[in-house]
Design a protein around this nucleic acid. Structure first.
Length: 577
RNA sequence: CGGGGUGUAGCUCAGCUUGGCUAGAGCGUCUGGUUUGGGACCAGAAGGCCGUAGGUUCGAAUCCUAUCACCCCGACCA
């Protein structure tokens, strides 16, 4: 492609509403432009990169035996009602009413549609297993789009769904996908980490997340010091802190007046105590069940862990429910005296480190002190569970090893779904033993845009992007520096030679000074730069420079093509993992 | 959704506190010339319903009200 004809609107100044490096560079290098909050138009260079990513994904998915399909972006709300996920997704799901009054969903994902296809078309174990995937736009009405392409309202996702007759078959495909993902991310030139994850709203059991560690990541990943275990923060387990055991007799529970002091911070300040002495009490609902969750004041409840402990989906109770349960305003809940009124009491291990603590009195403007776990509220019993339900924090251990925390960008996740969708949508098959069973499912997602953005996050310098060659918009940029006829014709000749050979070349034929071309070439991040100037042409040479390196190599014109092809091969092999 | 902030040229922003000439700068764009290996220089030019709608005033980019858009922070509170 000729630069003079291409739409590559580079900008010198950093766009004011771009915070993180990838977002700034994607705008500065002319890869995309914002249309509205969380939506972008991809310009030629940006789209070329996305196409390359998609092609790698498609190639590896096909090799894995998956079959590509395409499902609609507009889906009937009824499908979502059948699985109840319209409620789970809530306001994040974009939807609209059509002229006939029907509710439609702009697909945030496609489990429902693909499962209804399976329900219609798969009848026998002989058709299983099967893995169907698509690469398509997804829509999420994010409460707050940000970080450019990393959290946008519209994005491109590869989503795959596998159907199985039994768990062993699911395990097998899961493993194949896991390996396929490793190859995909390696080929895209990413350095990634694989961590254990929760399946969350997706339902099911077993999940791994593929993340690219970097400062701008929104996810927190936790690993043991020796790297033997890694998980995301929603999942990461912690060793229980040593529980206190004394035979000391404690003073009886005593009320303290805490007018209008509701939060942990306010109480600590008012009573001049450490948060470690407080027992934080949260009320959750699960359907009509009430769940009381306790954690030490300096920790946070991890809702995913709580959900797993309870075994059902949960949500924080609303104000009225809390008032009815505790008889007090929100902010003064405590476990003492109300445990018989809830369906479950879940106590985090950390509470056992408290000998005699402070908690809400279930009476507006009052807390109580000298609260002894086990004496003033039960630690065991039919509906009492002591478990790990808090977030890991700096200083925590797991399996006796120190935990370290990093930020990462989630670029892919694989899930074992089980029968959550197939059971509800009637995706059943007739097994060998002539019984009808719901298909066992897995699903596997990859964020295409996020691959591009995270590649930039981890591979750039002050001058611009440094693309891995596998997803670079062009492999080679030719920058003639100078106006001499010999320079121009040499550049044209090399351009033609390489292009005819199938190399993707951008020829900077603009009538601008050399400096401008070099600055833009660096900003665009094209891996190989061939420069032809007055000095080198006099020696019948051109210069080759790699974007990621300082070194400039002078190469005779006759050998440019061969040398370039060698370099492309070398750079490509570095991306093969 | 709660809190904060910003809307002025294609981009980055000044001007607004204290209302008053024809609304500014840098970058970019166009024309001519000089330049030509790391974002050149000179001369000239185009480009604005000062987000939108009301209001106050002799007079509003500037003050008031409403509204929209965008950005940041938070949404685990007991």
């Amino acid at each position: 492609m000729r630069y003079s004809k291409a739409l590559i609107p580079t900008v010198k100044e950093v766009p004011s509403d771009a915070e993180i490096p990838s977002h700034q560079l994607m705008l500065r290098a002319g890869l995309m432009r914002k249309v509205a909050s969380g939506t972008y138009t991809y310009l030629p260079l940006g789209w070329r990169t996305l196409l390359k990513v998609m092609n790698i994904v498609r190639d590896e998915m096909n090799k894995s035996g998956a079959q590509e399909i395409l499902m609609p972006s507009v889906q009937p709300m009824e499908l979502w009602q059948q699985t109840g996920r319209n409620v789970d997704y809530g306001p994040t799901m974009a939807h609209f009413t059509d002229r006939h009054g029907r509710e439609n969903v702009l697909a945030p994902t496609a489990e429902e549609v693909v499962t209804s296809i399976a329900a219609g078309e798969i009848n026998s174990y002989k058709q299983l297993p099967i893995n169907l995937y698509q690469i398509s736009f997804k829509f999420r009405d994010e409460f707050r789009p940000r970080f450019g392409v990393l959290r946008s309202r519209e994005f491109i996702m590869k989503d795959a769904y596998s159907f199985h007759a039994d768990g062993a078959s699911l395990d097998e495909t899961y493993k194949v996908m896991y390996e396929t993902y490793k190859r995909i991310f390696s080929r895209c030139g990413l350095k990634y980490a694989i961590v254990e994850a929760e399946s969350g709203e997706m339902g099911g059991s077993g999940s791994h997340q593929f993340t690219v560690p970097c400062e701008s990541g929104e996810d927190i990943i936790v690993q043991t010091e020796d790297g033997s275990y890694a998980a995301n923060i929603e999942k990461a387990p912690v060793d229980a802190l040593p529980a206190v055991k004394t035979n000391k007799t404690h003073k009886p529970v005593e009320e303290v007046h805490t007018p209008n002091r509701k939060t942990i911070d306010e109480i600590c300040e008012f009573l001049k105590v450490d948060a470690k002495e407080l027992i934080k009490t949260l009320v959750y609902k699960s359907g009509s069940d009430l769940i009381l969750a306790l954690v030490r004041g300096d920790f946070e409840i991890n809702p995913e862990k709580l959900r797993c402990t309870v075994g059902k989906s949960i949500e924080l109770a609303d104000e009225d429910t809390i008032k009815t349960l505790t008889g007090a305003e929100v902010g003064f809940a405590g476990p003492v005296g109300i445990t018989s009124k809830v369906n479950k009491l879940v106590i985090d291990h950390s509470v056992l480190t408290i000998e005699a603590g402070i908690t809400g009195a279930n009476k507006t403007d009052y807390h109580i002190k000298n609260v002894v776990p086990g004496r003033d509220f039960p630690l065991e019993g039919k509906n009492v569970i002591v478990a790990d339900i808090r977030n890991a924090v700096e200083g925590d251990m797991y399996q006796g090893k120190k935990l370290i925390f990093k930020r990462g960008i989630e670029v892919g996740q694989v899930f074992k779904l089980g029968t959550k969708y197939s059971a509800k949508l009637g995706a059943k098959f007739l097994d060998k033993d002539s019984t009808e069973k719901p298909c066992i499912m897995g699903c596997y997602g990859i964020g295409i845009n996020r691959i591009a953005a995270s590649a930039i996050e981890i591979s750039r310098d002050d001058d611009g992007i440094i693309w891995p060659i596998s997803i670079a918009p062009f492999e080679v940029i030719i920058t003639p520096a100078g106006n001499g006829e010999d320079i121009t014709s040499a550049a044209e000749r090399i351009y033609k030679e390489l292009t005819d050979g199938g190399t993707e070349v951008l020829l900077d034929d603009r009538d601008v000074r050399g400096g401008v071309k070099f600055k833009d070439a660096d900003l665009l991040g094209i891996p190989i730069r061939i420069t032809i100037g007055a000095k080198s042409i006099a020696e019948n040479c051109a210069e080759i420079k790699l974007r990621g390196e300082k070194e400039i190599t002078k190469v005779p014109l006759a050998q440019i093509k061969e040398k370039t092809l060698q370099l492309i091969e070398k750079l490509k092999s570095a991306c093969s993992g």
